[in-house]
Structure formats: C-alpha cells, structure tokens
Design a protein around this nucleic acid. Structure first.
Lengths: 349, 349
DNA sequence: GTGATTAGTTGGAACGTTCCAATTATGCAA
DNA sequence: TTGCATAATTGGAACGTTCCAACTAATCAC
C-alpha cells in the first residue's frame, strides 16, 4: 500500500505549498503564516509523516545530530547503570537521544563503539572509560571538535572534561570516622595501583592518617582486584603482618563485602571484631548483614551533571575542559561497629 | 586547520581514483583491484576519514541503518540492565549499534523515545514495555514494517514477537517444591493484577495447587505493588486471615525481601518459621540472609535471544511474529527452609 | 504613482553517500 | 585482425532535508 516513506515533498504537494515552507514549519519558524502552518501540520499528521533526521543533519553539515554517545565500562554494575540513567534523564529532556554501549572493560570494544558512534555523527560523548584507557584513545574525538566528558574515572593527560567523585575526601572521612571510634591502625584495602582513582583515594588515606596524628605504614596498604575475591585476599594479607590492623577502609563496596567474607573465614565478625568501611554505597550495602558503613556517592547525580556539562559544551560550540568533583557522604551503618566499644583489640592481636 | 570533514571525494582525489571506486572499497566489493584497494585504504587512514553513515543510509532508502532501538522500563533495576547488556552483546557483534532509552515506566516517555528513534531510522526495536503499554502504541512501528520484539512483558493484542520467561512453570515449580517440604497452605504474594505476567504466574500457582491435590483458596492470593514495601504489606495481609499460610511464593525477589521484612516485624524468621520463594534471582538473592530461594531467570540470555530474533527478522526483511519462552530454574537456598532447619536457627533467634 | 518596507513563500543547490548504466582496458579465441 | 567476454573503473542521478537568494503581494510614506 505505501510506496516509500512520506517526505517533506509529499506534504508540500498535499498541502499546496512548497517544500521550503514545510521545512520552515518543521523548524518552528515564525516566518510562516499561522493558517499555512496549521494546514501543513494537519497534512503531516494525516499522512503519518516522520521526520528524517539523517537527511537533515546531512545538510546542516557536521553540527547538531541530536545524538550523544554514552559508553560505560560495566552496565551490569548498578553503579554505572545509575550513571547511565542520570545521563539519559537530562539528555532526553534536552531533545537528544543516547547511544549507549557497554564495553565490559575491553579496550578493543571501546575503540569499536567509539568509532561506530563517530560514524553515526554523535555530537558529544560521555564515557566512564575502560581500565587502561589512554589519552590517545580520545585524541581523535577532541581534534574533531567533539566534546567529551569522562565520568567516574579520569583519563590522565587527556584534555577533556571530567566528572568524578571526591575520592580523596571520601576515604578521608572514612578513616577519620574509624579513628574517632578508637582505631589506631586502619588498613586501606583493594584497588589497582595503576589507576587515578586509586591514587586519589590513597592520598585521602594518607592525609587522614596524618591529620589524626598517626603514622603512615606502607604495610597497611594492600592492593588487590576491586572485587569480592580481591577483598577476601587483601584482608588475609593485611592480617598476616606483625602489627595487625583493627579496621579497614576499602576501595569499594565489593571489596568490603569480600573483606567481610575473609574475616568470617578467620572467625572474626565484621562490625564487632574488625571495622569495615566501603565505598560507593551500592544497593546491597544497606541490606547486607551487617549493613555496610560506606561512602555514598550519587551516580545518577553524576550522570546528570556530566550530561549537563556536555550539553553546555555542545551548545557553546567549543569545549573547554572543565572538571567537576562530585561530593560524597559517609553513611554510618553497622559494619564499622559504630556505636559501641573502645576495646577492639581484644579478640586478636 | 581542518576545513570541514573528509569525504569520499577527498579520498578519491588524493588517491587518484573516482568517488565510485572509493565507495566500492568502503563496501568491500570484490570488483576493485587489490592494488587500488590498498592505496585507497592507505589514503583513508592518512587523512583520517570517517564514514558518514547518515549519508549512506539516506541513499539506500529506508533499509539498513545499522541502528537498533532498545527501550527498557527501568534500567536501575539490575534485571533490566542485564537484559540490555545481553542485547548489546549480540547487536554489537552484528555490527549494529544500540540506541538505549529508559522510560521509568512512563508511557509518555516511552512514546517520545520511540518517536525519536523512528526519526533516527532504527531498523528494529527491542523493548520491555512500560506498564500499561497498549498494542496501539506499537501499531505505527509494525505498519511501517519495522520489526519489534517485546521482552519480559508481553503486550496483549500486538502482532509482534516476544521473548518472555516461563512464568507459569516458574511459579509451578516453586509451589511444588514448597509442597514437597510439607507446606499445605502456600500464599501467592505481590504483583499487579492487571498485568499479563501476573496472570501467567497466577495460572502456574493454580495449576501447582491442583496438581498437589490441594484446594485453591482465593484468600491466599494477595496482590500488591511488586516492591519491597508491597511485599511487607502483602504478607501482613496474608497472615491476618483465619487459616494462615505457612509459606509463600512471591511475585518477584523484591516482594520476597519485603515479605522477609514483614515476617521479622512479626517475630517470625523467614526460612525457619515461614518459607519464602522469590522470582528473578537478582544478585542480592544469594548474599541476603537468609539466602533467597527463588526462580532464576537469565535476563542477559533473554536479551541475547531477543536480539537474535530481531536480527533474524531484520535480515529476513519481513517480521513474522514469533514467541520465545525462556525457561527458568528453581534455585533452592535458605529462605524456603529447604533441607531442614537445623542449620538455620543458630544465626539469630 | 513611485519607491521602500514587510510578511510570506519559493526554486534550486548543497550535504556525503550509493546505485546504475556506461565506459575503458585486458585477455583470449577464432 | 576482429569479436567478445571479463575485470576494473567511472560520471551522474538520487536519497530527504536545509539554506540561500530571489521573488510576490501587500502596505505604507511621500
């Protein structure tokens, strides 16, 4: 029944005007007579016209495609899913649409999806980069004048905007809280050393230790994969040193849960015999037993801020790199053994 | 420095061939001489050419845009995030790219994003529809010949393909399992009555009750929002009837967790004093205390299957509605008090 | 009545690609 | 040599839109 799609020319013919006029209507121009506009829109509805954005931004060369690319390293992780939703909210209400892809931490995949997105003419990109992402990977984008905002993890040396959480302050608050509960030896567990996030958090750790008048002990810093297994491993290593820690701030919540596993394997009850603080405040944190004391970051808010920043740059036409540090908040639950005792050393040591 | 983007004509000029030849190279045609191909690709790399897919599928009218739309009702829900990842995996490896949008169960939003996707010329759509989605909402798509696959939830009356989990069988297995543990009165808790998924699960419940030789009691079916709060509410209503149930199959895991909350509020310990079975097998299910017995569905697998089905239809050129029922599996953990309650009492009382 | 101003409309060129039909070059059989 | 198939290449038209400069008609000022 239908022969090809309905175009602006069909509308023009049916409404008895020129295609230029139809185009004007499409763009909401004030140049067109109200009566004409009404007739044209009526015809469009009647014929079931759908706008062909591809054709449009072929003409208006290079600029506004109304597509923004979103690349996340792990969508199955609730944290990043929230981030994507935050982005979607503002992107959608600005009349853009998002191309979302998941890289599963694969650099190859990341390269592929970015290339594919460029082919589709994205007008901006938001990404939480896969581990090991290089400034070089973003180079083509920025030199093509495509605004880029990296979120969560920063990319060293890249001249792009970023939205990251206040890693330094988060760990700082965690350590200070533990110190206020009487802990003199708090370990820093988990995370890969070659990442910027690790550096920031470690710096927060050192600063907090110093500000509490304690001495920094390299043995209390144990790196490990930022996973549950990594956490279990890290705590067992941390407890094998001479002067054992009585508490730990962890690289993230997954590590913290692993630490709890590891403690139980040694007959220690987290929150009672050993204090644990996580980072991220994932959903399970509040329902776990014991409920996890952790640093709460607002991933959806970060997504929103990243999107706002990107849109600002798209509209401005030029991208001045800008950094936003998203503030975090210590949420005290049970795993730090908060309210009670000052005699944590008794069980072991 | 750069004046406009590099086009196929620039490449042609630089390589000393015609634009047609370059186009042939782009499409990997075997018609072009190997030497020519090599030179052209070299020049493309050198000049930093990026393919303009928009222009391409403007020409090859209507068909292959290499974009598939994905609409989910709640991306912050791990279940749907997994679904999206499953889709992404196959879509990506087929050289397509996915437009993903989140509707937050809003029909308006859903309409908007679908319209927007059409404007961008998606060649197919996968959606887990927002609650209340009507066959009418999908009508324009199918009559425009765009293949549509609905996942997780079906849309009554719509002539589109679907991939749903075996709701009937899942609940059936749950009830039978509880019966095998000796439960004679098992409630069915949570979910909205006006949904197809609820109908299917309720049917499974009735069938199981019948097959166990028990009598169906309408009082044991308590609808409630499919959330934690809804679960707590449902169980308190279920326990207020004369002949109280001793077990429950729940609409989903969130409800099941809520049921556990509600039980504890009445000094009943889930898994010991009352058996609970969930549905979905979300990540928290295995780490919760007690670990949740539940019906495991594989959302990522469903996503993959949905994507495969869609791609098949896209390639076939015509969309014959097809239904896939994804099988489910009962995972026995602690919350149903499975083997016997000797190991459960010790934790707390 | 002439010229200037304004509101509304319009045809054609352009965007970057693909497709088609046409062309040239090459090899080989008769 | 001619004829003819095969391989490789090519110029233009087309896709659906937007932009530009040009146009018409009406109004106004003098």
């Amino acid at each position: 029944m239908t022969k090809g799609r309905v175009t602006v020319i069909d509308i023009a013919k049916a409404a008895g005007v020129s295609k230029s006029t139809v185009s004007l209507v499409l763009q909401g121009s004030s140049l067109v007579n109200d009566g004409t506009r009404a007739k044209v829109t009526a015809v469009m509805r009647e014929l079931g016209y759908v706008y062909n954005r591809g054709a449009a931004n072929l003409r208006q060369a290079g600029s506004k495609s109304k597509i923004i690319g979103v690349v996340v390293n792990d969508l199955t992780n609730g944290f990043f899913a929230e981030l994507a939703v935050g982005v979607d909210v503002v992107v959608q209400s600005a009349g853009f649409v998002q191309f979302l892809s998941n890289t599963s931490e694969s650099l190859d995949r990341q390269r592929e999806v970015i290339a594919s997105m460029r082919e589709h003419g994205i007008s901006g990109l938001i990404m939480s980069p896969a581990r090991g992402t290089d400034a070089e990977d973003l180079k083509p984008l920025v030199s093509a004048g495509i605004p880029v905002v990296v979120a969560v993890r920063s990319v060293a040396g890249a001249k792009v905007s970023s939205v990251v959480s206040d890693n330094r302050e988060g760990i700082f608050a965690g350590v200070r809280h533990l110190a206020s509960l009487g802990h003199r030896r708090t370990a820093f567990l988990g995370g890969f050393r070659d990442t910027g996030v690790f550096d920031d958090r470690l710096e927060g750790y050192r600063a907090a230790v110093a500000s509490c008048g304690l001495e920094f002990d390299e043995d209390l810093v144990v790196d490990a994969p930022p996973s549950r297994a990594g956490g279990a491993d890290a705590v067992s290593r941390a407890l094998s040193i001479a002067e054992k820690p009585t508490a730990a701030v962890c690289f993230n919540d997954a590590v913290a849960f692993g630490v709890c596993d590891g403690l139980r394997a040694r007959q220690l009850e987290p929150g009672r015999d050993f204090a644990v603080v996580g980072f991220d405040d994932v959903i399970e944190a509040k329902t776990a037993v014991p409920a996890l004391t952790t640093i709460s970051v607002d991933p959806q808010g970060m997504g929103r801020r990243a999107a706002q920043l990107l849109l600002k740059q798209i509209n401005a036409g030029k991208a001045e790199a800008e950094s936003i540090i998203s503030s975090v908040r210590l949420v005290v639950r049970e795993s730090c053994g908060a309210p009670f005792h000052d005699s944590l050393g008794r069980r072991q040591a």
